[in-house]
Design a protein around this nucleic acid. Structure first.
Length: 345
DNA sequence: AAATCGGGGCC
DNA sequence: GGCCCAGATTT
């Protein structure tokens, strides 16, 4: 039996009953694929259900606001996916008559749809023989064929895409693509793969060479930037607070936060007061007090955010003040959401 | 070619 | 603390 036939057979016996496996509707498949980019199924699943519930069709998603979409997306990370998803929904609803492109070449033109996602939708929804290469596929192929070149160099990416194309099962690409990913997720796992009970062990080159735990090879690790955030949790004399929308290029684009003062190092209440008056952010500051002396350290994959929250009481009323009860309506980073959840006023 | 973009689970 | 996750986009 060939590699792909064994994958197919394993999948038929071991596949999990996931909601997006009950349909080949491209809207549902697209939604699930965008949400699962760099995201474990356990984490993405509740978000998929929420989105399908609130937006049953691409038209419903297109008609929604970005803010509402970001709110539902809150906690899932990589928020550009949500913004691109909204843009693509509008393209499909408004320019394409509500119909998804039905082939790889057209799918990959959509915002937020790259090689993997275009291949996944084209194969799962339309049966187009395009191989998917996600993190699972890299691992399965690197081990089975004992490929020790890096998977994340441009040459490596091309090599694995070509290898995946060579070995794919064109007769049932729909199940094969999902099968090889499921096999990587459940059987050929990153740590402690279940090689003893593996139906592919007789042909696995890495197993025969004792290299299973060395593969796949990945280049470089990114170094982590430290940043120092000071959030101003403001209360005016009507107990309203202030939120600002993050603009520009960096993390958390278009999400909300308390007014932020970023510094090069830890600072005290005096510096915070000075910064407030320098920027003429607020008038009539009555008091500035820290919630904690120790920072909350929020760890992203490429930044560590050392964060202090400051309570700032005002003697006047803010024209754009937001009642504390309405704060949970805004999409915010998990760092902010955790703080709001933790404190009681 | 390298950097950027989140958050959570596991060891 | 490091690694990984149904990757895409920007620089």
């Amino acid at each position: 039996m060939s590699f792909s036939e064994k994958i197919l057979l394993w999948y038929q016996k071991n596949k999990r009953p996931l909601p997006w496996r009950k349909t080949t509707n491209p809207y549902n498949i697209w939604l699930s694929e965008i949400m699962l980019q760099q995201t474990r199924i356990a984490q993405g699943l509740p978000y998929y259900k929420k989105f399908v519930e609130e937006f049953p069709t691409v038209e419903a998603l297109a008609a929604s606001s970005e803010e509402r979409i970001l709110k539902l997306w809150q906690g899932l990370g990589y928020y550009s996916r949500a913004r691109n998803m909204h843009a693509t929904a509008k393209t499909i609803a408004n320019d394409l008559g509500g119909r998804f492109p039905d082939n790889y070449a057209d799918l990959i033109k959509l915002k937020g749809v790259g090689d993997y996602t275009a291949s996944a939708i084209a194969s799962i929804c339309f049966g187009e023989p395009q191989p998917v290469v996600d993190g699972n596929v890299y691992r399965v192929l690197a081990r089975y064929f004992a490929v020790d070149g890096p998977i994340n160099s441009p040459k490596g990416t091309k090599y694995f895409k070509a290898l995946a194309r060579e070995v794919m099962h064109t007769g049932n690409i729909r199940d094969y693509n999902q099968g090889i990913m499921e096999f990587g997720a459940l059987q050929c796992t990153p740590q402690k793969p279940n090689c003893q009970a593996c139906p592919l062990k007789s042909g696995c080159a890495a197993l025969q060479k004792g290299m299973v735990d060395k593969l796949p090879v990945k280049l470089k690790k990114q170094k982590i930037r430290k940043r120092f955030f000071n959030y101003l949790v403001i209360f005016d004399n009507e107990k309203n607070t202030l939120l600002e929308k993050r603009r520009g290029k960096g993390i958390w684009q278009n999400l909300y936060q308390f007014p932020l003062i970023e510094c090069e190092k830890k600072v005290g209440p005096t510096e915070i007061r000075n910064k407030i008056s320098e920027k003429e952010l607020l008038e009539k500051v009555v008091s500035v007090t820290g919630f904690d002396d120790m920072p909350i350290v929020h760890k992203l994959s490429h930044q560590h955010l050392y964060t202090w929250f400051w309570r700032v009481d005002l003697g006047n009323a803010l024209p754009e003040g937001i009642p504390w009860k309405r704060v949970p309506e805004f999409p915010v980073p998990v760092l902010i959401a955790d703080f709001i959840k933790k404190v009681k006023f």
